[in-house]
Design a protein around this nucleic acid. Structure first.
Length: 558
RNA sequence: GCCCCAGUAACUCAGAGGAUAGAGUGACUGCCUUCUAAGCAGUAGGUCGCAGGUUCGAAUCCUGCCUGGGGUACCA
């Protein structure tokens, strides 16, 4: 039999066929059957993969679980060339991979090369991941860095899983926060010329605001001081400058976008007006206290929300509805994933309600919340205040600890958990730092392969059947789990599984390194040397792929 | 008050119905004449916040409570 790259799916399939037959014999409808789960037992005595399905079928089939397990095991179309099946009390089915099959996977990996781990499951479904979307009123800071890393890594992994992914940044360039920012810059610009100009109450205080004012001064001299268009000119300049800064800062963190979408463009096009009239037609709008409200309570939300203020200005919510309508209706995305900071969590239910109001299936919209980050230096908490402009920017962070460490630490935590980011730890080049553990494994492997090249040792001549050592087999078994992990991440939208898997691969590789000497000066050992080089070539491919998916570098030397 | 997230080893965190609850760090023991010791092997370390419930089986699901964080604007 031919086992597909995603072992778990293949095992699910054969179990499913077998259990359907059994259900049929017992007169049980297929829709009553529970989902078949495959797990990886911690204890290797229980095989490489296992299923608890007999236990879950006990009631339905009115049989003892172990009896069921045996019946299933007997029916399974197993072939000792790939794996064997065993049953265990109280009712598990354990799958043990055959060593020959495991070794053969080395060539499967090498043949696939950098596409190993890529899957067809997404079937080209059009997915948008919208993330970061920091207001261009200031640089991106540490909290945004987490969402940025999450989004970019998730995009990589969903692409690998076969989805057609668009990475988008939503520019909030409409609304009064922008005006406040422009006024702040303009006030600093006037100060530079010794002119009196009121600094707005609740204006933007950061030093970067003065920095932009200085750039404007360099470009325009004093010509804006008495210019009627000074707010528009200074505003456009400031916005452009800020977007450049944000884009460059994200870029050094390894975060890139396919599209930058302007909020303002929703008003310049028909998107906004169409959305409002559609909501009006569908009778979800109402006037109250001289404002226009979206009646989200009609759609099970907990309260209604203002769409157009008393002063005639649309709220952020209004343009966000138009924006999401644009994503689904105009641009026809099959699925949209938004990554928001925890402080926007209250916005979820009303946006979903708005989708329902527009007859858009709100299950196509997934909003992931990236929780708060507490920045620490050792035991000391680094305080941040956006109001005073006193915060650590993405650039500060990357300059201090490096992009790889940033990405690893943000990725390794599940998005829904608040986390601590210890800059001291992330900077350390020692065994305390898991980033180095992983990259070091890659560097060691590459080093051996390079050395082999110098000595004219060709791994392609290596006979993989010589690889019988427990550390060799363990390494291969770990490598071949990559497709499963890609699948897991793309299904669960939880990229944090990848860094944990990366640690396992590194651990297997380091153990192999310690226990299996590769390049030997003894000519009699050349055969095993070549066989091990063959394995290392496959390992190098998998490491590179994992690090690529996480957006981290794969150093050849450390 | 109501809504969301979290509480698991000394620390940072995985595990989200199954077999003996894991990893890294820290502590303690060993291991470098040979491809990188940024490594390996081992020891110690747990009332899975608390209390009920569902189940053959609960860290995992349900209910209540406690603690921490976030939200609950005609801010974004």
């Amino acid at each position: 039999m031919n086992i597909h790259h995603i072992l778990i799916q293949e095992l699910q399939n054969i179990l499913s066929v077998c259990i359907s037959e059994m259900a049929n014999e017992r007169g049980i409808q297929p829709n009553e059957l529970p989902k078949i789960e495959i797990e990886k037992p911690f204890n290797t005595d229980h095989g490489d993969y296992a299923s608890n399905i007999p236990l879950r079928l006990t009631k339905l089939f009115k049989n003892n679980p172990l009896t069921l397990a045996n019946e299933i095991a007997k029916k399974l179309p197993c072939n000792a060339n790939s794996f064997t099946v065993e049953t265990a009390a109280p009712g598990f089915i354990n799958f043990k991979l055959s060593e020959n099959w495991v070794r053969d996977q080395i060539n499967v990996i090498i043949k696939a090369g950098s596409s190993y781990g890529d899957l067809p499951v997404g079937k080209g479904t059009k997915v948008m991941i919208e993330f970061v979307s920091v207001n261009p009123t200031g640089p991106a800071h540490v909290g945004h860095a987490r969402g940025a890393v999450l989004g970019s890594a998730l995009a990589n992994m969903m692409s690998a899983a076969g989805y057609s992914v668009t990475r988008e940044y939503y520019i909030n360039d409409a609304g009064n926060q922008m005006n406040l920012f422009y006024e702040s810059v303009l006030a600093r610009y006037h100060e530079l010329h010794g002119e009196n100009y009121p600094f707005p109450e609740k204006g933007y205080q950061g030093d970067y605001v003065t920095g932009i004012a200085k750039l404007i001064q360099e470009t325009y001299g004093s010509s804006l001081l008495n210019n009627n268009d000074m707010l528009k000119i200074a505003g456009d300049f400031s916005k452009g400058n800020m977007l450049n800064v944000i884009s460059e800062d994200l870029s050094i963190l390894g975060v890139e976008f396919d599209n930058w979408f302007s909020e303002k463009s929703l008003f310049d096009s028909d998107d906004y007006s169409e959305t409002i009239s559609e909501l009006k037609t569908k009778q979800y709008l109402k006037e109250m206290d001289n404002a226009l409200w979206f009646a989200s309570t009609l759609l099970d939300d907990d309260k209604d929300n203002v769409i157009v203020r008393t002063n005639g200005e649309p709220t952020y919510f209004a343009s966000d509805i138009a924006y999401h309508r644009n994503k689904f209706v105009k641009r026809k995305f099959d699925r949209v994933i938004d990554i928001w900071g925890a402080d926007h969590q209250g916005h979820i239910s009303r946006l979903k309600a708005a989708m329902r109001a527009l007859h858009i299936d709100d299950s196509k919209l997934t909003i992931l919340i990236s929780q708060m980050v507490t920045l620490k230096k050792g035991d000391e908490v680094v305080k941040a205040s956006k109001r005073t402009g006193d915060f650590i920017t993405v650039r500060d962070l990357v300059d201090e600890v490096g992009a790889d460490a940033c990405r690893y630490f943000f990725l390794a935590r599940s998005a829904s958990s608040q986390m601590e980011f210890d800059m001291e730890l992330a900077k350390k080049t020692s065994n305390e730092n898991p980033v180095h553990y992983i990259q070091y494994a890659h560097a060691r492997i590459t080093n051996i392969l390079n050395l082999a090249l110098e000595k004219n040792l060709d791994w392609q001549k290596g006979d993989i059947n010589l690889l019988t050592n427990v550390h060799e087999l363990k390494l291969i078994k770990t490598l071949i789990r990559l497709p499963e992990v890609v699948l897991q991440v793309s299904d669960s939208l939880e990229p944090h599984h990848m860094p944990h898997y990366a640690l396992e691969v590194a651990s297997s590789a380091h153990a192999f390194y310690e226990n299996c000497r590769v390049i030997s000066s003894d000519p009699e050992e050349e055969a095993i040397t070549l066989a091990r080089l063959h394995l290392l070539e496959a390992s190098r491919i998998v490491f590179k792929k994992i690090l690529d998916l996480m957006g981290m570098s794969a150093p050849e030397r450390m």
